[in-house]
């Protein structure tokens, strides 16, 4: 499916990343020695059972959380070891976020929410680009509405538009359709797909839903803090099939770890 970029560079990469929460008895190792690359212009889904470390991985990749060991790069920029200020600037300029919910500021209109990162940076968003995204997301007549006046699907579309507004190097989405019905979810996923195909956007999306994963170019499976499978050209059926054998995969991973 991926046809957009002829030259594949790496947008995001993790090298031997470890992350543990707590100490001693209560210690939980969320990520153990994770190494993974995400090609630019590709749409990657991360899947795995609850508690497998998907969100943790995403947070570490996006500079929201620090790693215990290992390094993370966004493009050429090493994320590891950056100051809070530098991380903030990195997030502002190079990363777009879509969360499961609470993506928007209730005091701002849809349009203001879309241009929020630029406003924070004190810069002016590229109007042609914004217009294009808004058009693609079919938000033209919703721009002056406050988030409370929008449906959940519309809110997530506004969040998508915001994530893309500053043309970030990569967009991270943590279960962006988790709170949506099938139709609204499909709309959002279709847009993410379009943005990859047409605009060459790089997207990393955490999801539980095999049919959502099917929109991606590649699916990375996580279990117990480790990557256990890397599937390209996924379909819903292939993913479901893989998930059925998950217990075996996890057992194999644990054996490997031991």
């Amino acid at each position: 499916m991926s046809t957009a970029s002829p030259v594949k560079t790496t947008a995001v990469s993790a090298e031997g990343v470890w992350k543990a929460y707590g100490t001693g008895e209560a210690q939980v190792v969320a990520l153990r020695d994770v190494s993974v690359q995400f090609a630019s212009g590709a749409f990657t889904a991360i899947m795995g059972p609850s508690g497998s470390g998907k969100s943790t991985l995403m947070h570490c990749l996006a500079g929201l959380d620090t790693t215990d060991r290992g390094t993370v790069h966004i493009g050429d920029t090493p994320v590891t070891g950056l100051s809070d200020k530098a991380l903030t600037k990195l997030r502002r300029d190079k990363i777009g976020f879509i969360f499961q919910q609470f993506n928007l500021l209730p005091t701002l209109t849809a349009e203001e929410n879309i241009t929020l990162p630029a406003a924070i940076a004190g810069a002016k968003a590229d109007p042609d680009w914004i217009k294009k995204i808004i058009h693609t997301l079919d938000l033209t007549d919703r721009l002056s509405h406050k988030p409370t006046e929008l449906s959940g699907g519309q809110q997530q579309r506004v969040a998508c538009a915001r994530a893309l507004a500053s043309r970030p190097e990569v967009v991270f989405a943590d279960e962006p359709t988790g709170n949506l019905d099938t139709r609204s979810g499909a709309e959002v996923l279709r847009f993410l797909r379009t943005s990859v195909d047409e605009f060459g956007q790089t997207i990393v999306m955490v999801t539980h839903d095999p049919s959502a994963a099917a929109y991606a170019d590649r699916v990375v499976f996580l279990a117990d803090g480790q990557i256990v499978e890397d599937m390209t050209e996924p379909t819903a059926d292939k993913v479901i099939d893989k998930m059925k054998h998950f217990e075996e995969l996890v057992a194999a991973a644990q054996e490997a770890a031991a």
């Binding site: 903030t88 600037k89 502002r92 976020f97 609470f102 993506n103 929020l116 990162p117 924070i120 940076a121």
Partner: peptide, 8 residues
């Protein structure tokens, strides 16, 4: 959210 998307 604001901090995540780049507010210092």
């Amino acid at each position: 959210l604001l901090r995540a998307i780049g507010m210092t």
